[in-house]
Design a protein around this nucleic acid. Structure first.
Length: 425
RNA sequence: GGAGAGAUAGCGUAGUCUGGCCUAACGCGCGCGCCUGGAGAGCGCGUUUACCGCAAGGUAACGAGGGUUCGAAUCCCUCUCUCUCCGCCA
C-alpha cells in the first residue's frame, strides 16, 4: 500500500507509475476526492465529539434533574449527528481502502520501461544455452523412462497438472530442498517451518488479498487459505509489530509447498512439471532498515544465484520491466536457469524489494533509535529457488546419453552418496 | 465436540458486580537525572499508537465487530483467540 499523503501530494507520480505498468489511472482521482471528503467529515465529527465529551462530563456532575433532562435532550441531537457523520466516514474509508489496496507499488527509477515480459532485460548471463553432443531429452521423457516421474498416477489422484515423484526422483526433490535450506542458512538466513494455511488478514497484509483472491485456494468452512508462497507467512510473522532496531536485518528462509489455482490456458506449459497447482519452493525473506534495503536486495539476488552456480546450472539474471513488475515490488530481478531438453530458460526465482509498500499494509515497523519513533521497515523476498524448474534443469543438464542422470556433487550428501540416477527395478 | 475461566499498555496485574471523578491505578522492565571513587540500593522525572490540524489542540483505540446510552474498560449480542477439565484423534 502506498502512503495516502504521497498520493495526495504527488498524484502525477502515482499515475505515471500506473501507466508504466499498463494500468488504468482513473481511480486515482476518485481516491483524492474520497481523501478530501474523509478529512472534512472527520473535522466536523471530531469537533462535535469534543463537545459531547465535555458536555457529558458536565451532565454527570449536574444536580438539578430538570437541567439534566434539558442538557441530555440537547446532546441527543448532537449524538445523532455524530452517528450520521461516523456512518459517512466509514463508507468513505471503505471505498478509499478498496481503491488504495489496489494501487501497485511505484517502480524504482532503475526499472526499465516495457509493456510486457517480452521487454524484460537480460542483465547478465552465466553459462550458455548449452546442448549435449547427443540428442537432449526433455525431463518428461527422462523422468518417465527412469520411472521417477509418474504423470498418470498424479492425474488419477488430483487431476491435470499433478504428478507423483518416485524413488530417487522424490529423493532428489528432498535433496534439493535440504541443500537450499542449508545453503541459505550459511548465507545468514534463519530457517523457519511455517503453517501452510493462513488466515485471510495475513494474506491481506502480504498484499495477496483482495486483488489475487481468484488465484488462491480457500477453505470456506474454516476460512483458511492455502499459501501461494512462503512469502505470505513470512510477512505475517511480524505483522502489526514494532521491531527493535538492533534486530534488523532479520533474514529468514523457509520451505513450503505453494498452492496456486493458475487458471491456465490450455496448451501452454502443459507438458512436464513446469507449472502446477502445487509446487515446492524454498523462500528467502528479509526485514531491513530502509537505508539498507538496496544492499539486502543485492545480497539476496547473490544468494539465489549462488544456488544455481553451486548446482552447476547455466543461469541468467533478468530485470523485470515496468509492465511485468509484480504488484508489491518496487524493483525485481528474475533468475532463470537453462533447460537443454525443453530448450528454454526457466524462471526459478524472483527477487523483489518491496520497499515500505508491503510493510505499510502489514504494519511492520521498527523503533528508530535516533527519533525513538516507529518507522516502516523495508521488506524483500526472493525464491531460493522454485523446486520443479530447478529439478527440470538439473535433470536435463545432467542427463547422460543412456538416459541416466548424474547427481550434482553438492546434492550427493542428501542422496545417500549415489552418483547417478538409473532406471529402478 | 462438551463444560468452565480468561483477553486491559513491553510484561504482570487493578478496575467490570454498582456506567460519569478511567486513557485508565499499581508492580516489574526500560530511559533520563540526583546520589556514588565506581556500581548497587534509594530518590525524582519520564515511558502506547494511529488519525485530523500550520499550530494550539482535538479525536479514536481496554481481544474484534455490532448494540443500548447524553455518556461504555464497565451493560447487551455475535465472533476470534488463550488456559483448565472431559471426550475424540495422528
Amino acid at each position: 500500500m502506498l502512503d495516502i499523503a504521497l498520493i495526495r501530494e504527488n498524484p502525477e507520480i502515482v499515475k505515471k507509475s500506473m501507466r508504466d505498468r499498463q494500468m488504468s489511472v482513473e481511480n486515482v482521482d476518485r481516491l483524492l476526492e474520497l481523501d478530501k471528503t474523509r478529512r472534512e467529515l472527520l473535522g466536523e465529527a471530531e469537533a462535535l465529539k469534543a463537545k459531547r465529551n465535555s458536555e457529558s462530563k458536565a451532565i454527570g456532575k449536574a444536580k438539578d434533574p430538570a437541567e439534566r433532562q434539558e442538557r441530555i435532550a440537547a446532546m441527543k441531537v448532537v449524538s445523532d449527528r455524530i452517528a450520521e457523520l461516523d456512518k459517512q466516514t466509514k463508507e468513505t474509508e471503505e471505498e478509499l481502502k478498496n481503491i488504495i489496496s489496489n494501487i501497485p507499488n511505484i517502480p524504482d527509477e532503475k526499472v526499465p520501461y516495457g509493456v510486457s515480459d517480452a521487454e524484460n532485460q537480460v542483465v547478465k548471463t552465466f553459462g550458455t544455452e548449452m546442448q549435449h553432443d547427443f540428442e537432449d531429452k526433455p525431463h518428461w521423457d527422462l523422468g518417465t523412462n527412469l520411472g521417477i516421474i509418474d504423470f498418470d498416477r498424479g492425474t488419477k489422484l488430483s487431476g491435470t497438472r499433478f504428478y507423483v515423484l518416485n524413488g530417487q526422483g522424490a529423493q532428489l526433490e528432498r535433496a534439493l530442498i535440504a541443500y537450499m535450506l542449508d545453503l541459505h542458512k550459511k548465507q545468514g538466513y534463519k530457517e523457519r517451518y511455517l503453517p501452510f494455511m493462513v488466515k485471510g488478514d495475513i494474506l491481506y497484509g502480504a498484499g495477496q488479498l483482495p486483488k489475487f483472491a481468484d488465484n488462491l485456494y480457500h477453505d470456506v468452512e474454516e476460512d483458511f487459505w492455502m499459501v501461494p508462497t512462503a512469502e505470505v507467512p513470512l510477512t505475517g510473522l511480524y505483522m502489526g509489530e514494532i521491531i527493535d532496531e538492533a534486530q534488523l536485518p532479520m533474514r529468514f528462509t523457509a520451505y513450503t509447498p505453494c498452492f496456486r489455482r493458475e487458471k491456465m490456458s490450455a496448451g501452454r506449459d502443459v507438458r512436464g512439471i513446469k507449472r502446477g497447482h502445487q509446487f515446492d519452493k524454498v523462500e528467502m525473506y528479509c526485514y531491513s532498515l530502509p537505508e539498507k534495503s538496496e544492499e539486502e536486495h543485492e545480497r539476496m539476488l547473490d544468494a539465489a544465484c549462488e544456488t544455481c552456480k553451486l548446482l552447476g546450472l547455466n543461469y541468467r539474471i533478468i530485470a523485470q520491466c515496468t509492465g511485468d513488475l509484480g504488484f508489491n515490488a518496487r524493483i525485481c530481478y528474475d533468475v532463470e536457469v537453462w533447460a537443454p531438453g525443453c530448450k528454454e530458460w526457466l524462471e526459478v526465482s524472483s527477487v523483489s524489494n518491496d520497499w515500505d509498500f508491503q510493510a505499510r499494509r502489514a504494519q511492520i515497523r521498527y523503533r528508530d533509535s535516533e527519533s525513538g519513533k516507529p518507522r516502516l521497515v523495508h521488506t524483500l523476498n526472493g525464491s531460493g529457488l522454485g523446486l520443479p524448474r530447478t529439478l527440470i534443469s538439473v535433470m536435463e543438464t545432467y542427463q547422460n546419453p543412456d538416459g541416466s542422470i548424474t547427481v550434482p556433487d553438492v546434492l550427493r550428501p542428501w542422496m545417500g552418496g549415489i552418483e547417478r540416477i538409473e532406471k529402478e527395478d
